[in-house]
Design a protein around this nucleic acid. Structure first.
Lengths: 198, 198
DNA sequence: ACAGGCATGATACGGGTGTATCAGGAAATG
DNA sequence: CATTTCCTGATACACCCGTATCATGCCTGT
């Protein structure tokens, strides 16, 4: 083994520089040179570890996904009751603190990029949203079985709707239309409605 | 007056070329030269009518907003019942046909741009979302007064939630996670839930 | 100790960007 | 008819982009 330097550590350092720029100045400002400067390395090094820019973008996106997942697991913590799990997952996505604001902003930056790339990015990074939606639906179904949700509710539609709503609420917060707390209040209201047995 | 050519018509022609590119290839592909080619005019002309690129971007955004508003008014049509009005407004935003897909995609392209511009774009174009949300809330309140919505509901939160949900659903459709029809079905389900008196 | 390969620095290339400049033609006004 | 104003074409500038090339250092295994 060579191990002159920690390869993975370097890659992480560079990819996170990219994410930092994407968060603060947008993805279009994340040029190879800017990333190199931000990471405190030479342009050549960025090229060395990620041959092409697309490679760097994809790697950074994967790391961003991992960060979000880690955050969700942290927020779920030791919660067991379905309602608490659902609440944790949904509210941890809302841009209410610095970390989630960063993650949300960066995801939004990638979103526009993905829209106009013919699925080049899709094969990698997979779809967190769809698996997440399935997980949410499962939690809701459990709650429904326990009588905490009206039996006539369509939990699949409810899960999809809630996830989309959180997504949209996040956009409005990022757009400055409302605060994170207000968004959270709206989400809470809808969760209360869902978990109401008449 | 000179009136050698129709000024406004030229501006419209160029701005719509910009919107067309933003829809099909993304905003980052909408360079001055590309817009000129797409509009079938010279680069100089684009510069002449919109001195700066920012000016062009803003003008095109304003036109996009007008297009969306025109579409909404068309969809509302002669509907009078609050529920029908609300349904029309929300569902006409979903990317279910070519026009709404175009508008939604283009708005998404602008969204990333607005996120990293220090409110330069905000003063212009105003906030359609906030006024729209207020309008929705008013409609819901009317329906509530007529007994079509449970009196205990918070119509303000419901309006905000629905709008955010439609926004999020649109993103998922654009992202290819689900079809426009599926999104519409989810929206319809939630509207049914809202307009249920127990 | 020495060869080999991994790691990195300096620099260049072709192309695309937004914007500016200069010149000329056509139409309307005096 | 002359002249001023509006409109348009050609071209240039300075800059930034992603990528490639060449050269060289330094570590490591033998």
């Amino acid at each position: 083994m060579t191990a002159k330097v920690d390869h993975e550590e370097r890659r992480r350092q560079i990819a996170e520089a990219l994410l930092r720029i994407a968060d603060t100045e947008g993805l279009q400002a994340a040029s190879m040179r800017a990333v190199a400067t931000e990471a405190g390395v030479s342009l050549r090094l960025v090229q060395y570890y990620f041959t092409t820019k697309e490679g760097l973008l994809l790697d950074a996106l994967a790391r961003l996904g991992a960060q979000l997942q880690a955050r969700m697991e942290r927020w779920i913590g030791e919660e067991r009751a379905p309602r608490e799990v659902v609440t944790a997952i949904l509210s941890c996505i809302l841009p209410t603190d610095a970390e989630s604001r960063r993650i949300t902003r960066t995801y939004a930056a990638y979103y526009a990029l993905v829209l106009n790339d013919p699925a080049v990015l899709e094969k990698q990074a997979a779809q967190p949203p769809v698996v997440l939606e399935g997980f949410l639906a499962k939690q809701l179904r459990t709650a429904q079985g326990a009588g905490r949700i009206d039996a006539r509710r369509d939990v699949g539609a409810a899960a999809a709707g809630l996830l989309a709503m959180v997504n949209g609420l996040g956009s409005s917060v990022l757009g400055g239309q409302r605060s994170g707390e207000e968004a959270l209040a709206i989400l809470t209201y809808h969760l209360d409605e869902l978990f109401r047995v008449s």
